[in-house]
Design a protein around this nucleic acid. Structure first.
Length: 882
RNA sequence: GCGGUCGUGGCGGAAUUGGCAGACGCGCUAGACUUAGGAUCUAGUGAGGAGACUCGUGGGAGUUCGACUCUCCCCGACCGCACCA
């Protein structure tokens, strides 16, 4: 039997939707809105992979369903097109990144259109368009021209910054202003890759190292963004969004708030304090030594003559290590004594000061008080270097706990913590913390302190293919950000994308662009040659979809308020790999805009959902070696290596070129059609789960769509004679109304796999009927339409309609028809099933009991024993306890 | 090590105010139609047992008339972070 003609009808309706602007979105403020967003793709040369259609189909189904329910739905698509892979490709081929990007986006667009997604392509955005990155630059300047007001806890225009009175010279004032900006220049150690000629983000290093590149630590001039100022708000506002628990936890951990105290330790030999941060001020009496990071500013002063050689050697060794190497698994701690001593402010004792790279320069103050009795790391270090270990916290459960062998890090109560001025002996840990903190504060040698792990955002890249930073520098060392009327600062057209070789981007080589006379000041000027990271453009793209062509502003206020109303984007779907960085940067960016009142919500993404990965199947032998799929043959459900006949185990593995298990969406569309691909990806399993692709699974889905087609249409694509205006049987009515109800509910809950199985149940129910109710067929096609839009558009015409099914309403169901008039209930004897009974819906207990008592098997198991108790659950079961 | 998610047939997975475990699909078995079937249709399909029945949701305990679902302990898988003082 012939398959339904998907290869004809799919392109036909795609063209129809395009030409008739069926997916056009109007800013009709009278309708309730629904804004549903996908994470936009990076248009790589490889094209769409099989994972893309998963999340995109899910949102397409919801968008189409919501539209059928009367919502004005914004479901846009665009491209995150700046990025290193394109630039690398250009360096190798000499083809300009702009051309590469245009070609790749065109290819992506064609592939997305072939999947039948209902995007309004007039609303598409591309981060590399001048008219787009003009606003990325505009927003960067907003950040640059802001300081963070600690009292208001928000960004304020830099003009409002109050200048300390002791600053008089313009130079000092400018320096102060620059030191307060939310975007600033700093010399910091970065991950520099010489061959790529650029810095890399920490999370990018591994990837490039694996490809054989060398990445080293090196201090360089970089743009930073003070995201740390927003740490508390980024943490607090996680409470107001509906996000996956795990993602919220990851962001919380990343922000890493900890409460404790800063304490000054006096060093008599240099007459200076070393400030430490600790979360356990209650253990101050147990601080028997101090450790400062090798990069700490006081190391030179602290180092005595006889320790100098050892300290310098240690510093050299640790500076050669990258962050990653320094933290490599459970490596043994090392350190060197500086020769100096500090005074423990609680005990008055002289304690040695060491340097060790287990103390991180960038966290806290870069120095710690070491309490080896009650900190695992300090304990390990103290044991290794025979430093004294004191017990100052008692373990209630085990009074004999020996802290010289193992640290006790939990709460307990304080011991050996007493002097004339203060005592915390006998106090529990929280109380002891508070008493010590207050005492320190009164003495002026410490204060309570909240510390975050979050670090400032390294915002510059030494690349060509990114947004130019809209900043110019003058010869006198001053600089200015561009004004709005000077934007966009357009990337110059260059032929050579190789790095400048000076640690600057290729832009530094573009003499005619980089050096110029500033029209506004008449001064000789030079543009910043760094560009922005890829994250920048993706921080706000969801706002541009709202008003993509607007030349005056990134989005008109009324449109922004409408589409972002009710707490922001109604649903954002994308991979969990962006759980921290993209989602944290975008939240930060949005909050700055919120502080300026140009967006109306404190958070951009009200509800977030991560789709799982689509995996491939792979095979491994007894030595755990993965065998590429083209070297595997299957026989009787078992798998063998074609080279030596060795039996292999089938496992689920990420799709990869080397394993030859990559599925190409174009091939699937060619073989089974876009509708089959869409539904199959939904049917694989729960959207959030990772699940393996299955060749026979998609055949099953294709079979299902063929069955659905044959229910209504003939081989000649006309209405089947068996579809007539006839009443439904009660079973058919039940199936139809359950289907309408369940599919609607499942879409709302993102349970697409169970929605698809309900459709199969419907088709199974009606397949056996010789005559099918036309009404049932029409309502079913409407339910199926969000999932299989091409097939349903065609069936809708076959059923005699002339309007596009996209514009139809989702059918209503009758709740009374979703319950059967008779139900089967289970008879149990002492909780074991002994019989079944058909009774009217909501039958009362006595009637059921009477009927149940007639059941042979029940009587046999009751065996005349006295019934102790009867449990009756209406419409479910009756249970006799004997 | 810390944080999180999750363990159900041969496979993907359903089912939780606690109430028939395995919906739906794949695969498999048998049959029908057919020159043919890798198309289509029909029936069957957790395990054991001839059967009445018994066992069964990673393992062990507990609560309950009743546990995939709730509690405790253990084991395993995956993801994230990783000397954060």
């Amino acid at each position: 039997m012939a398959a339904y003609p998907f290869s004809e009808i799919e392109p036909k309706w795609q063209k129809f939707w395009d030409e008739n602007k069926i997916n056009k979105i109007e800013d009709d403020f009278s309708k309730p809105k629904y804004y549903i967003l996908d994470m936009f793709p990076y248009p790589s040369g490889a094209g769409l992979h099989i994972g893309h259609p998963e999340g995109y189909t899910a949102t397409d189904i919801i968008g189409r369903y919501k539209r059928m329910k009367g919502f004005n739905v914004l479901h846009p698509m665009g491209y995150d097109a700046f990025g290193l892979p394109t630039e690398r490709y250009s360096m190798q081929t000499g083809i300009h990144p702009k051309e590469v990007t245009a070609k790749n986006t065109k290819n992506f667009t064609n592939q997305l259109k072939a999947l039948g997604f209902a995007y309004d392509w007039d609303r598409t955005v591309n981060t590399t368009d001048e008219s787009y990155y003009k606003w990325t630059q505009w927003m960067f300047l907003k950040i640059y021209n802001s300081y963070f007001d600690e009292i208001l806890q928000k960004a304020m225009p830099i003009e409002f910054l109050s200048i300390p009175e002791n600053l008089v010279s313009q130079e000092e004032i400018d320096a102060y202003i620059d030191s307060q900006r939310l975007a600033f220049i700093a010399m910091i150690p970065v991950n520099w890759c010489e061959e790529l000629g650029t810095v890399l983000a920490n999370e990018e290093c591994d990837e490039w190292r694996e490809k054989g590149y060398t990445v080293e630590r090196k201090p360089m001039r970089q743009w930073m963004i003070r995201i740390t100022k927003y740490a508390q708000r980024l943490l607090d506002d996680l409470e107001i969004v509906e996000w996956p628990h795990s993602t919220k936890e990851m962001q919380k951990n990343w922000i890493g708030k900890s409460e404790g105290a800063e304490i000054d330790f006096f060093v008599p030999s240099i007459q200076k304090n070393i400030r430490v941060f600790t979360t356990r001020p209650d253990t101050l009496f147990g601080a028997t030594y101090m450790v400062v990071a090798p990069e700490h500013g006081l190391v030179n002063e602290l180092t005595t003559a006889d320790q100098k050689a050892a300290i310098e050697a240690y510093i050299t060794t640790s500076s050669l290590k990258s962050d990653l190497e320094r933290t490599e698994l459970n490596k043994e701690k090392s350190g060197v004594f500086t020769g100096s001593y500090a005074i423990n402010p609680a005990t008055g004792a002289e304690i040695p000061i060491w340097i060790a790279d287990y103390v991180l320069a960038h966290y806290g103050t870069g120095a710690i008080m070491a309490v080896p009795g009650h900190d695992l790391r300090d304990n390990e270090f103290a044991q290794k270097y025979s430093l004294p270990i004191l017990k100052v916290v008692e373990n209630k459960e085990n009074l004999d706990f020996d802290v010289t062998k193992e640290a006790f890090c939990e709460d307990g109560y304080a011991v050996n913590s007493e002097k004339s001025e203060v005592s915390i002996n006998g106090k529990n840990t929280p109380e002891a913390k508070s008493i010590i903190s207050n005492w320190l504060e009164n003495k002026g040698i410490g204060k309570k302190k909240i510390q975050f792990k979050l670090r400032d955002w390294l915002f510059s890249r030494q690349r060509y293919w990114g947004e130019p930073m809209p900043i110019m520098f003058f010869e006198d060392g001053t600089r200015r950000g561009l004004d709005e009327d000077e934007l966009p600062l357009v990337l110059p057209n260059v032929k050579d994308f190789k790095p400048a070789g000076t640690g600057e981007s290729p832009l530094a080589n573009v003499e005619e662009w980089v050096n110029f006379i500033d029209k506004k000041t008449g001064k000789k000027a030079r543009y910043e040659t760094n560009t922005m990271p890829q994250w920048a453009g993706s921080c706000w793209y969801y706002l541009r979809y709202i008003d993509p062509q607007n030349p005056e502003i990134f989005a008109a206020k009324d449109k922004e308020e409408y589409w972002m109303g009710d707490g922001g984007i109604d649903l954002y779907v994308g991979g969990a790999e962006h759980a921290v960085l993209h989602l944290l940067y975008a939240r930060f960016w949005h909050k700055v805009l919120f502080d300026y009142g140009v967006v109306s919500t404190p958070e951009p993404f009200k509800k977030l959902f991560h789709q799982g990965l689509i995996m491939g199947l792979s095979y491994r032998n007894k030595n755990n070696v993965l065998i590429p799929n083209d070297l595997v043959e299957s026989k009787d459900g078992k798998f063998f290596d074609t080279r030596n006949g060795e039996e292999l185990e089938e496992i689920v593995a990420k799709m990869s070129k080397s394993l030859k298990n990559v599925i190409n969406p174009d091939d699937v569309i060619k073989d089974f059609g876009a509708d089959s691909l869409r539904i199959f990806e939904m049917f694989l399993g729960p959207l959030e789960a990772s699940k393996p692709w299955s060749k026979s699974g998609i055949e099953g889905i294709n079979r299902f769509l063929n069955r659905a087609w044959r229910l209504i249409a003939t081989e000649e694509s006309t209405l089947s004679d068996s579809v007539q205006d006839v009443p439904m049987t009660s079973d058919q009515e039940f199936a139809l109304h359950c289907t309408i109800k369940k599919i609607g509910e499942d879409i709302e809950n993102l349970s697409f796999n169970t929605a698809v199985s309900q459709m199969m149940i419907f088709v199974n129910e009606f397949t056996s009927a010789e005559i099918k109710s036309k009404e049932a067929m029409e309502k079913f096609v409407l339910c199926l339409a969000p999932f299989a839009p091409h097939l349903c558009e065609e069936l809708w015409r076959i059923l005699g309609h002339t309007n596009s099914i996209v514009l139809e309403k989702y059918p209503e169901y009758d709740i009374t028809k979703t319950v059967k008039s008779e139900v089967e209930i289970v008879i149990q004897v002492t909780s074991k099933i002994r019989g079944k009974l058909i009774v009217p819906l909501d039958a009362d207990q006595s009637a059921v009991e009477e009927l149940a008592m007639k059941d042979e098997s029940v009587l046999k198991h009751l065996d005349g024993k006295p019934i102790r108790k009867v449990i009756y659950v209406k419409n479910k079961l009756i249970n006799f306890i004997v």
